[in-house]
């Protein structure tokens, strides 16, 4: 049934490894940049607020594929030499996903009520203690489901690096398919692989969602 998959199993798994690597790099850069973007979106300084807001709205309105292409074209101009698709893909994913993470962080921050902060001050906590023990843990707990969901979306998005020839799972499956012509099993296998990973992730996200719901009732 899955004979073509088994014959090329290590080749395909190597692709999956690249998929994971790309997703890990995208998250390692996208989440910290997302925190900065989120802070910029709630900034009262208009020199920070407006540029960040325009950046977010611009990126969120254009297709990811186009962002990937754009960086693929612009990187050689900046560095002056033709480059490997991997770093170019990483940069485009960081720039793209940071806008989505930024909105999650903004929403998380804005979900903290003024009363809660005032109550913390009233108990005698200092500003840094309030941030450390009250606002950050609560905001983080509320953001957890969205953060996990967006991480899964990022993993799915990495498959679009296909277009600049990055040999990740989908690209490798299509390379094998060109030789073996076993489209059903090859793309079926890729679909099942992604499904298992992403479905597990969405279950974890739902578990945290449930936890937040219970915490809010109390």
């Amino acid at each position: 049934m899955f004979d073509a998959v088994f014959r090329n199993f290590s080749f395909l798994m190597g692709g999956l490894l690249i998929t994971f690597k790309l997703a890990a790099c995208a998250l390692a850069g996208g989440i910290p940049l997302g925190i900065l973007v989120g802070l910029g979106r709630i900034s009262k300084n208009k020199w920070i607020y407006y540029p960040v807001t325009y950046y977010v709205n611009f990126i969120r309105n254009i297709p990811l594929i186009l962002v990937i292409f754009w960086f693929y074209f612009v990187m050689p101009i900046i560095t002056g030499s033709s480059i490997d698709p991997f770093p170019s893909a990483v940069v485009s994913f960081i720039v793209f996903e940071a806008t989505y993470f930024g909105e999650i962080f903004r929403a998380g921050y804005q979900s903290i009520s003024k009363d809660l902060v005032n109550a913390a001050f009233a108990t005698g906590l200092t500003y840094s203690q309030t941030v450390r023990y009250i606002t950050v843990p609560i905001a983080f707990r509320r953001m957890m489901p969205s953060l996990i969901t967006q991480s899964i979306v990022t993993l799915q998005d990495t498959s679009l690096a296909f277009v600049i020839g990055l040999p990740e799972l989908v690209r490798r499956a299509s390379i094998v398919d060109n030789l073996e012509v076993r489209s059903i099993q090859l793309f079926g296998f890729v679909a099942i692989t992604f499904f298992i990973i992403c479905y597990t992730g969405s279950k974890i996200s739902r578990y945290y969602e449930e936890k937040v719901r219970k915490a809010n009732i109390l």
Binding site: I152, Q156, D157, S159, L160, F162, V170, A173, S174, D177, S183, I184, F187, G188, V190, A191, F194, F195, C198, Y199, S202
Partner: peptide, 21 residues
């Protein structure tokens, strides 16, 4: 669950290459 947890590009390849088969 099925359609949300599989990247769109994979779905498209499946329909285009495997679909007719």
């Amino acid at each position: 669950e099925l359609f949300r947890n599989i990247p769109f590009i994979v779905q498209l390849f499946f329909w285009f290459y495997a679909g007719p088969m």
